[in-house]
Design a protein around this nucleic acid. Structure first.
Lengths: 351, 351
DNA sequence: TTGAAAGCGCTAACAT
DNA sequence: ATGTTAGCGCTTTCAA
């Protein structure tokens, strides 16, 4: 491939070089039939030589709406978003919109840059998960209709999963299984859900006799969970609650690799209920949120905003969650593990 | 939320209604400082009452390039694309572009609609996987620089994984393990890779003494694999090769659920090497393609095209693949399965 | 078949 | 602080 200097070439340049009127050039491209075949051929030749490219934006009638919506998420590779994306797509299709997926890759800088670049192009935003500050988010919200997911933001319509109830259910499950302490493996610090989950776990735990400590932050990925295992092994808890399923799965694998039995020695709980959690071995106990609904609700709301609806309530819309009890949690064992050796020693229960 | 009739309101409407000049309205929004606070407030009020929305496209200086690239894939939820997307994003960031992800959800109609909507907005296309016809794809390629992945398309630059060699390696592996027949579980018919994989398997199998039959098409998902299991159980082969890992995983689980041991009774092979394949039980033998490189190479090429490079070679760029032999394949057993009962019976080898 | 000219909705000089 | 005016790159009447 040979590079050429990049100076935007317009139809005027082409017209001049080809000795025709700009409108003829326009027609040559836009409605091929309406122009003399020879003229058209010559124009195309000249255009090609000049390196002409139709301008991305003005090409379409400037009055046209783009019917494009942007959905911003922090990592497309995270299966957690699959259903959310599906829901959003479904609702968008129904409303005659197309969803453009933007991926911040867990970086607030990238997120902001992408958002800013999209403002002139899309009619509205759905923020699936943001790593930006509330105020930065509000700045964008001022420019285009926006709905935020997984974060409660004053003055911007938001839809969140009921993380508080989910955390309470987890605490109660573990208590019922005889655990009296658990370690929370934290995800990204900029994640709103992370904060809510840990605080809810800790506070409700304090009320009901489950001491929840925290390690992290870790990347919200399988690798992140693997990394967390090292810390966990230093002082192995009988129960681990992870920020999300991917971390939980990583932890589970990390533990199994070290010879620690899950759930016999350590119970593991996640959040999200992604596909793998249903097919891993053991299957993962997790808090399932109605991701698909979250996505479609959000899109319906932006579309309503675009159509002139007004946002009223200052409260976030809360969607119910469900605790899926599966194979990775079990009655607390009376055994204690010496992780370095991977052997087990019998002991009384400790606080 | 209250809906309102949708008649595009411009700054001129607002200006007239507020008794000011259009430019004042423009400034009130674009440059808040430069306008009397009272006037600005009044304008905002009027604008709001009229349901004014900044026009998505003309808002930015019309001369600006969008610096946006579209990446079209057939299913964002398929982890197969994760690395491809990453590669594309990395290369795009480096070139100062933003990647917009578009998802056809396995539908050529949706794909075409999305592509057409994106033409005026993006500077170039990377088609990660297409369900459209070659000619339909070429139509879009005429309007914007385009690079196609996973499909060889004459006149349009394309980058493909070396499916042929991958298939050959699979055939040889299975032969070496003593198998003399295998069933290929097909994916989407519109998938170019599907055709190449099956033909390569069948042809190379014919040469080396592995009879490859085909069932399908099935959805390229875990559920698709589960569905395929039913057909497979009717006449259980000693080896299954799936269009992709997701199907392979579905098949594996479907078989295990029915009491068929993998790999003892049936060997299973996939294509792609997605994350789960490394952590499933058993781990999955699969053909790994350099997805990340595919993505970044494609993006580098569109960017070059945008910058005026010319596409020359009519051949697709072929990237090497690697067979990862893992836990789901084993020496062919002498036992035969009576799948309906889930029991095993000893028998001699059969053709 | 082709040219001239008028916009599309908005921003940015340049005036006032 | 605000109004006037000239474009942005392209398409589209309207004439010729």
């Amino acid at each position: 491939m040979t590079e050429q200097p990049r100076v935007p070439v317009t139809i005027y340049d082409v017209a001049k070089a080809a000795g025709v009127a700009p409108s003829t050039v326009s027609r040559a491209f836009a409605r091929p039939g309406r122009v003399n075949a020879d003229t058209a051929a010559r124009i195309r030749q000249v255009a090609h030589d000049l390196g002409y490219r139709a301008h991305p934006v003005t090409q379409a009638p400037v009055t046209a709406q783009t019917r494009l919506l942007a959905l911003m998420i922090s990592d497309v590779a995270n299966p957690f978003y699959s259903q959310l994306i599906r829901g959003a797509q479904l609702a968008a299709t129904e409303a005659g919109y197309e969803i453009l997926l933007a991926d911040s890759r867990e970086s607030s800088t990238r997120e902001r840059a992408a958002l800013e670049r999209l403002v002139p192009v899309v009619e509205g935003f759905v923020i699936g998960s943001s790593r930006m500050s509330d105020s930065a988010l509000r700045t964008i919200a001022k420019q285009r209709p926006m709905v935020v997911l997984n974060r409660a933001l004053i003055d911007v319509p938001s839809v969140v999963a009921d993380n508080v109830s989910g955390a309470h259910a987890v605490v109660e499950l573990l208590r019922d299984l005889g655990h009296d302490a658990a370690t929370y493996v934290a995800g990204p610090e900029a994640s709103w859900a992370d904060g809510v989950r840990f605080r809810s776990l800790r506070d409700h735990g304090a009320h009901t006799g489950l001491t929840v400590s925290r390690i992290g932050p870790f990347l919200p990925t399988f690798e992140g969970g693997l990394a967390a295992t090292r810390t966990l092994l230093e002082k192995l808890p009988s129960a681990v609650i992870a920020y999300n399923d991917l971390i939980a799965l990583g932890v589970m694998h990390g533990l199994l690799r070290e010879g620690v039995a899950v759930p016999e020695q350590v119970s593991v709980v996640g959040f999200d209920d992604i596909l793998i959690s249903r097919i891993s071995l053991p299957t993962l106990t997790t808090v399932a949120a109605p991701m698909r609904q979250l996505g479609s609700t959000a899109v319906k709301n932006v579309v309503a905003l675009i159509n002139g609806a007004r946002h009223r309530s200052t409260e976030a819309l809360v969607m119910p969650v469900q605790l899926k009890v599966r194979g990775s949690t079990a009655q607390r064992s009376r055994k204690r593990v010496s992780p370095a050796l991977g052997t087990t020693i019998v002991s009384g229960s400790s606080s």
